[in-house]
Simulated scan of single mutants.
Amino acid sequence: MAMDLKGRLAVITGGSAGIGAATAMELAGRGARLFLGARRLEKLEEVRRAIVERHGGAEVTIAPLDVTDPASCAAFAEGAAMQGEVEILVNNAGLARGNDRVVDASEGDWREMIDTNLLGLLRITRLFLPGMIARKGGTIVQLGSVAGLEPYPGGAVYCATKAGVRALSKSLRHELLGTGVRVCTVEPGAAETEFSVVRFRGDSDRAKAVYKGYEPLTPEDVAEAIVFAITRPPHVDIEELVLFPTAQAGTMAFHRS
């Protein structure tokens, strides 16, 4: 039987667009209270308004968050604690920068990906873990990627960070054994979000070409998978959930019409 989320407080990082925003909408539809963070506060406000318009009684609080900044993370966690006991954490914030091969890539891009995708996730997770452990329950969902399972040329550091997310999550499962805290890694294949626009620094034509000739996953597809994992009964932990578009069989394997 699915877990009732009514009144439960869910925190989502990177909640201003894409999978984060879609997950917020899905959780609000299940009655969860939301605390959303992202760097773009104006975009967060648009998400908050959209959720309230669709789900009239939804409780949605937003706050600025830069996961690469320890002080920002600490302030965000303090703000969330003021809303009540956090039972759900979705670590969605992440990005890719460029697709240069290692020999040509920018160290600045490497640092941004590592600081966001790994250190940022660790910072946020550590801030929310003590409360979950003390209450003997909670669910943490980490946004990984199939890139962490099957690396590809031009994505070495991004793939390494997502492999790191998977490894961190599995380590956490061992560390949290017996606490009642669940950890799940959701690893999507090609999903049409702002991901490629960010990767290619705003080049929308280049970003659109990534999804040309096949039907990619939508943010809503991934959000439904995340919420499925969250709503399993407390004795069930979906430790790892991989989803591809039907037209994709691997990171470099697509059927394009």
Rank of each mutant, 00 (worst) to 15 (best):
M113W: 03
Q142M: 13
R126H: 14
D115H: 08
N92Q: 11
A96C: 11
N91R: 01
G164V: 05
G120N: 06
D100P: 00
L119T: 10
E150I: 11
M113Q: 11
R111A: 06
R123L: 08
M132S: 07
G155L: 07
G144I: 01
Y152H: 08
A160R: 00
W110G: 03
G138Q: 05
V157D: 00
E150S: 14
A160F: 03
L119K: 03
A134R: 13
A156M: 10
A156H: 01
F128T: 01
R123Q: 10
G138P: 01
T139A: 15
R111N: 04
V141P: 00
C159S: 14
S106G: 13
M132I: 00
G94L: 03
I114E: 01
I140N: 00
D109R: 01
Y152C: 12
N117E: 09
F128K: 07
Y158R: 02
L118V: 14
L122D: 06
P151W: 04
L149I: 13
D115Y: 03
V102N: 02
D100N: 09
G94D: 07
P130W: 13
D104E: 13
G98A: 11
G148W: 07
R111L: 03
A156D: 09
V102C: 05
N117I: 06
D100E: 15
K162V: 03
M113C: 05
G108P: 00
G148E: 03
V102F: 15
G164D: 04
A93Q: 07
D115E: 15
I124E: 02
